[in-house]
Design a protein around this nucleic acid. Structure first.
Lengths: 143, 143
DNA sequence: ATTTGTGCAAATCGTTTGCATCTGA
DNA sequence: TCAGATGCAAACGATTTGCACAAAT
């Protein structure tokens, strides 16, 4: 009875991840975390994540999705992607990297490998320190 | 009577600029352009520009400010700055350059001179072409 | 039992739009 | 004259918030 539950193996992983992050592993947090982190790098908007959750029969409310995304971000599990446009995107890839952004489509994805190198980073103005350097390469369908 | 009006000298300049850009120099467009372009490089939000206009007794409506900012942008007189956050900023500096962004304060300003160099620009994915590369250096007040 | 999270609906914020009324060439 | 511009208010989409209820430790 204790060993024939491979189905919950992921739940446990995720629960531990959440606990380690200082978040109580509630039903909806675990479900959202599974959706977010089980398919490799993703860039989701709150609305998209909400739709996916509902589609998988995890009827979270949109407000909870927003709360959860922000909590995950604070906990360092997600990174908010700073692209213009009305919507906010959350990136499951928390490491240092940059993004491509397709204008019109409002689609975001990582620039693979060492595609970008920042030649020289400017010195921060007096009394300021650099938090992060974001590079966004804007694309448009050719022709 | 015709020669003692140095006050309108700027109006004329701006009117010409607008005409050249294919925009009718209406009262509000001229006023907004003066506010925008007479003080060197600026980064304004629609709301800020609206407040400034009202403060100088040019009671434009906020809707007109938005329309005007977009028209100026299309005409190449302004550049929309793509920083996250709810607000959209318009930059009177249309040349190629990058930005500092102070978190919390929501303040944007140009990175002076050749502060940033992009070492290597990644190749665009199949069928895509690069429109522009935006670099945002995020700052935070030290300590 | 206590603390923390969740859902819902209403509220907010920035921005856009429809439409009747003005205005510049 | 009359195409184009403006103002107002209502519409909108994304996100946040207040509060009663539910769930986790």
């Amino acid at each position: 009875m204790t060993d024939i539950t491979p189905i919950h193996h992921t739940d446990t992983d995720v629960s531990d991840m959440l606990r380690r992050a200082g978040l109580r592993p509630t039903r909806q947090r675990v479900s959202l975390a599974e959706i977010l982190f089980s398919k490799g790098d993703r860039h989701v908007s709150a609305e998209l994540l909400h739709e996916e959750a509902v589609a998988v029969d995890v009827p979270v409310s949109l407000a909870t999705v927003y709360n959860t995304l922000h909590q995950f971000t604070e906990a360092g599990l997600l990174r908010e992607v700073a692209i213009e446009g009305t919507k906010t995107y959350f990136d499951t890839n928390v490491s240092d990297h940059h993004h491509f952004f397709i204008e019109g489509e409002n689609e975001v994805f990582d620039i693979p490998g060492e595609g970008v190198g920042i030649g020289s980073v400017p010195k921060a103005p007096e009394g300021m320190e650099i938090v992060r350097v974001d590079v966004v390469v804007r694309l448009r369908p050719k022709r």
